[in-house]
Amino acid sequence: MSLDFFDELSREMWNLQRRSLEPLTSTSELEEKVIIEVDLPLVSKKNIKLRLINEGLEIEASLSRCVKFERWGTIQRSCEFRSFYKIVPLPHQVVPENAKATFKRGILRVELKKMKRDKYEIHIE
């Protein structure tokens, strides 16, 4: 079995300090835009906050009710979670003003227009 399996197994999809869960996301890059999808079950549209920050797209969404998980391992963990939180890195610079977002059946879809890079010629001394 590859080591990736254990890397992934040990990578926790929650943050105990924040009491937040990490949502599943997918990022696709098209010619003119970047599309980010986020799976947000137990969330209603009014409780989602989206921000474009230097690190990427920041998603914060409170859950309609707290969720409790029991975990096993070296330390028995039991914790209530209140929200989803994740910063999704962007594969390309985007124009914040042209961002569009929809939320349907618990799936958030954000479309971001790519910023066109002006050509800048570098002069050779």
Binding site: M13, D39, P41, L42
Partner: peptide, 18 residues
């Protein structure tokens, strides 16, 4: 239980996707 299942199966889904 649809939402609950989606929430609880995130990690298995992530590993499975790989």
């Amino acid at each position: 239980q649809e939402d609950e299942i989606r929430l609880r199966m995130r990690e298995l889904m992530q590993r499975t996707h790989q």
